[in-house]
């Protein structure tokens, strides 16, 4: 029971927890624009945590350092905002209703 295992357990639990919270936000929030926040932020960070955990795990097994997980992490962190922006733009284009505030501005 060394330090690496504690770190790994923490990263895996945090990653899975954030992933779950992201999907929970997608399932229970009221309108499309608020639903967008869960998957873009929480899920991305959750999978990021899991990928870092995988990197630590394979590096700690003694076959040299394993860094290619970083590539997927970087890719996700670059693409998630782009998808979110496009989805928000499409929703505005279709004029989906928004709860609270002044509602969505006209296209």
């Amino acid at each position: 029971m060394d330090l690496t295992e504690y770190l790994l357990s923490f990263l895996i639990l945090a990653g899975a927890g954030f992933t779950f919270v992201g999907s929970l936000g997608l399932a229970r929030l009221g309108d499309f624009y608020t639903r967008l926040h869960g998957p873009t932020k929480a899920t991305t960070l959750g999978v990021g945590c899991l990928l870092v955990a995988s990197s630590v795990y394979f590096s700690s097994r003694g076959d040299g350092i394993s860094l290619h997980e970083v590539l997927v992490t970087l890719f996700l962190f670059i693409t998630a905002p782009v998808s979110a922006h496009l989805l928000a733009k499409a929703a505005l284009h279709l004029g989906l209703p928004a709860r609270g505030g002044d509602g969505p501005p006209a296209p």
């Binding site: 895996i12 990653g15 899975a16 992933t19 992201g22 999907s23 997608l26 499309f32 639903r35 967008l36 998957p39 899920t43 991305t44 959750g46 999978v47 899991l50 990928l51 955990a53 995988s54 795990y57 997980e69 997927v72 996700l76 998630a80 998808s83 989805l87 499409a90 929703a91 279709l94 989906l96």
Partner: peptide
């Protein structure tokens, strides 16, 4: 609405990545 379904599909992709990474570990 359609954007909701696309967002759900996108999230499903990312969840699958998480499952695959966990399976790898």
């Amino acid at each position: 609405s359609a954007p909701d379904r696309i967002l759900a599909l996108d999230t499903l992709y990312v969840n699958t990545i998480a499952l695959l990474v966990l399976l790898g570990i």
